[in-house]
Write a protein that binds this DNA or RNA. Structure first.
Lengths: 388, 388
DNA sequence: GTTACTTTTGAAGGTCTCCATAATTAGTAA
DNA sequence: TTACTAATTATGGAGACCTTCAAAAGTAAC
């Protein structure tokens, strides 16, 4: 049941110690052997042995010794985060966004390619290709340099990287995203729902950093959720978790309609821009707009409350396009949640903005590599792109 | 972030290998060194070394060699599951139930002590004491032999083993259960909500065996849930997870009322027994009873659907007292869930009966020991009761 | 009752990885 | 130039593992 860490021979020990060194060094500046020895708990000579091995494999690199220090200058080693790269792709309604990052998650290049909201499947896929290729060439990389890629999209996604159902873009249903993007890059290609990725990004570099249980609400032209449970992204048995909005009685389907029912905007306003006007008017104290926002918040709070009651998260994060209007939306939302829930979690607004999905995609790519490259079961192998 | 397995010296390797041997041997009949060697991946001589060490510590015991076998008879070793014991306690409305089990989860002794449903806090606690003491003496044990105990109770429980809120038994709110039971037994005393324990029991020895994501519905005089996520019991940030029934819009509070509204039972029937009559009449085809059951199922399905949509479990398990009437309840429930959910999980009935909570309590005790006694970080120490 | 066969046991020799300690080296500071 | 400091290099030893082979303790066949 519990999958057990296998024992083994002495090389296993070296594996574990190499892993410990890598773990100490990742995401930190260069360290001396003495410092590494202290942080890993290994003896100095052993540390040196391990470091030399990792260096010859290509995981570590010696850097200039720190100048102006007493005693013999120590060699310093850093983790070669640039040994491999990952991509994070966000396929949005208006924009395709691609981030290239190194193994420490440092984002080196960002590319945005606009795409018409009305674009069909083929046109949108072409934009994705263009964005990925632009990002690669800007970073001076080829697809072979990419060790893992995650693609964020709206809709339900299956384990094979296919969009099973997309409500927002009907033509999108059935598209083989993993396969399509896999033509351009090496390594594994993961496909994940965008709300989930945004949630993941919040636990990585957003307001939910280090929180173990998080309910993320994507509030925008679409409404969605991402659940972090026990520090991990929760997908469910068939990757269909978080679809609470589909429950007829909770009415996330209706939520949008409240906003669209507002009549205070200039005639001929694009319905997609209407929300902005509503929130702006509510901010200025327009009675009717405030009421509309309150009704929207109530519908949103219904589903959110169901999630909060079910999961008892530490944090609820409000993200998505409407989170820019958190100043008028957050308070009504909080009040409605407080009405319904047993224990009230903190409710905060995302600060990652519209890059959160792509950032989450980067993070998922990194987590995938973490499992395959730096796992306690396998230890560290040479730094080469892992197989698919 | 990810807590890393520390490296170490050679003794670490021995720890891991000892752990591997214990893991292979737990819950299985006695094995020979050759068999152990094969299953652990260690060489024969090393296996012998490890086994001898574990034997001298008291974890392993040599048993009679298997008779009538070709070649030189091999020594056989078994895991001493009786080196320590755990208790599982179920504090129910009418019954206190205590199970004593060994480290393999083999239940040796079961004790049931009746208690009046109207009993107050002191009387109920006295019954708990009596049940624990009876179970200990029946098993020939003292409290000092118990390495871990889990107490199941209705209501919300905090991390310190206090009942924070009990709706069913108002007097129960605030009772320091862990502390109270801790007077009688050694080791850690855990306190957990009964629905959650029942859910855990289903994944251990019930219909949800080996399922990773499970929604358990306790349907009875009380309605509750237990959530298994990623193979683990989900408690939430403040142990308040699974309280979906509290959402006013989903109406689990109302669910009971449907059953009680039925007028077909003999006059003067105890309201607690009413449900049985409704289900019996429905079984016989009484139109009104069928309608009542359907309404109840619908209310139950509302909350269940919210959980299914949120979590996308592999399995929904119907447990609790009403699961005895699954023949009339399950189908309406299934239909209502199918109406609302995107992906429909399997929906099955519990078969563990009224011992599920106590069984789940045993399992939680064992999981607690597993973490502290057989963890990869610490390895195996001598078989003595771990500290609180 | 002896002989052949099978499988486990026990012992020997070798390798790997770690640790502790001491001698050496390469800098800074006076 | 000399003293001081801290890292490096070298040495010896211990623990845990592996492979290999001879001896032992049974069963099965004659």
């Amino acid at each position: 049941m519990t999958e057990q860490l296998a024992g083994g021979d002495l090389s296993r020990l070296r594996q574990l110690n190499a892993l410990a060194v890598v773990h100490v060094l990742r995401g930190r500046p260069a360290l001396t052997l003495t410092e590494l020895s202290r942080d890993t708990g290994l003896s100095r000579p052993s540390t040196e042995d391990v470091v030399l091995q990792l260096q010859s494999q290509g995981w570590l690199e010696e850097v200039q010794p720190a100048p102006g220090v007493m005693g013999r200058p120590a060699r310093r080693y850093r983790f070669r985060a640039d040994a491999g790269r990952v991509l994070g792709v966000d396929i949005g309604g208006h924009t395709i966004r691609v981030l290239a990052a190194d193994l420490d998650g440092e984002v080196g290049h960002t590319v945005r390619v606009p795409v018409a909201i009305t674009a069909g499947r083929a046109e949108r896929l072409r934009a994705v290709d263009a964005a990925v290729e632009q990002c690669l060439s800007a970073a001076g990389l080829t697809g072979a340099d990419i060790w893992a890629t995650t693609v964020g999209t709206s809709g339900l996604v299956d384990a094979a990287g296919r969009v099973v159902l997309s409500v927002a873009f009907p033509e999108w249903t059935g598209v083989q995203l993993a396969q399509h993007v896999g033509r351009l890059v090496g390594g594994t290609v993961l496909v994940e729902n965008d709300s989930r990725l945004a949630a993941l990004a919040e636990t990585w570099r957003g307001v939910a950093r280090y929180a173990q249980h998080v309910v993320y609400l994507l509030a925008g032209l679409r409404t969605g959720t991402g659940l972090i449970i026990d520090g991990k992204l929760h997908r469910g048995f068939a990757q269909a978790a978080g679809e609470i909005g589909a429950l007829p009685e909770l009415g996330w389907i209706r939520a949008q309609e409240h906003l669209r029912s507002w009549t205070g905007a200039p005639a001929g306003t694009d319905p997609d821009d209407l929300a902005g006007y509503v929130f702006a008017s509510a901010r200025e104290g327009d009675r009717k707009a405030v009421a509309v926002v309150r009704r929207y918040a109530k519908e949103l709070a219904l589903g959110a409350s169901a999630l909060v009651l079910a999961l008892d998260p530490q944090l609820v994060v409000l993200g998505g396009g409407f989170s820019r209007s958190a100043d008028v939306l957050l308070e009504p939302l909080r009040r409605e949640i407080e009405k319904r829930c047993v224990r009230i979690p903190e409710i905060v607004t995302s600060t990652l903005g519209d890059e959160s999905v792509a950032l989450g995609a980067v993070k998922l790519s990194l987590e995938h590599l973490q499992e395959h490259l730096f796992d306690v079961r396998t230890g560290v192998a040479a730094p080469v792109r892992p197989g698919r």
